[in-house]
Design a protein around this nucleic acid. Sequence first.
DNA 1: TTCAGTGCAAATCATTTGCATACAC
DNA 2: GTGTATGCAAATGATTTGCACTGAA
Lengths: 155, 155
Amino acid sequence: MENVISLVEDRLKNGQWKLTNRRKHILTVLLENRGKHLSVEEVHGLANQKAPYVGLATVYRTLELFLLNDVVQSMDFGDGRKRYELCDPGSGGQQHHHLICIRCGNVVEFSRDLLKGLEPELNMRYKFKVETLQLNVFGFCRKCRPEKGSHQGTV
Amino acid sequence: MENVISLVEDRLKNGQWKLTNRRKHILTVLLENRGKHLSVEEVHGLANQKAPYVGLATVYRTLELFLLNDVVQSMDFGDGRKRYELCDPGSGGQQHHHLICIRCGNVVEFSRDLLKGLEPELNMRYKFKVETLQLNVFGFCRKCRPEKGSHQGTV
DNA sequence: TTCAGTGCAAATCATTTGCATACAC
DNA sequence: GTGTATGCAAATGATTTGCACTGAA
């Protein structure tokens, strides 16, 4: 936990940025909410359950700064607000993708491995050098999926 | 061309909607701009190069109506505006995915086939029933990709 | 000391909505 | 005729920005 903070500190300092109190505070919120996909508003709310107070604009600015430094990854589930999630430590960029249930709204992550073959394929077929890959899969999760043999409409 | 219009007309009428002048007009714009990924603002601009005038709100409403009826598919390239593109006639839903060049902004489509294996895999491993799949790949296109062996930073 | 970081309020920008009017069937 | 479609202007909601003040090195 503590070493994640100093790891981020080093990463920021590489780019002449400071790890201020507010930024450390926001980072702590992200650490305490691993695995969640937080909107800016949510981070703001969580951060301000404790002192010091952090302004909304600062949360916006800090999350974008973290994104730039591969501290977080961002995603968009199509609900009109950007969401952020801590990257796994040690590696940069996109770690995994998301299965979004269109009935209950639950979000499940799935490993990047399932797309492993895709990058070389795009490289070969389209001469396209992949940097970032964002995949959203909308559908029905384990609990909400229609029963086999029965019929059920889309929500 | 003409038969696409009547095809859409039938599809709308199934759901008690009318294919009005404005809607036909917007549909024509989409037909004349196949392969492009138009924002609402762009559709509005293109539509109003000819009579009849179409209000911006109508363009918004119409494109959402088309989306609902699988006449268009929508996408989001992360630039803060939704984009729309005509579906291939005859089939519903997502047809293909996009390679977005982060240097020149060019967008190339790639066939859904490359992800063919993914759906059954998600179904099996996660018991997830896929409905829609949105994949954005950001990177360097054929023209903009860094030369082999040389180094080039991200834009 | 000095420049980056922050809070606040105002500004932006895409999208949505209320309402009176116009149009399709 | 009757209910949907449309234009317009106002409302909304997420995000950004200007600016004066605060804080870290």
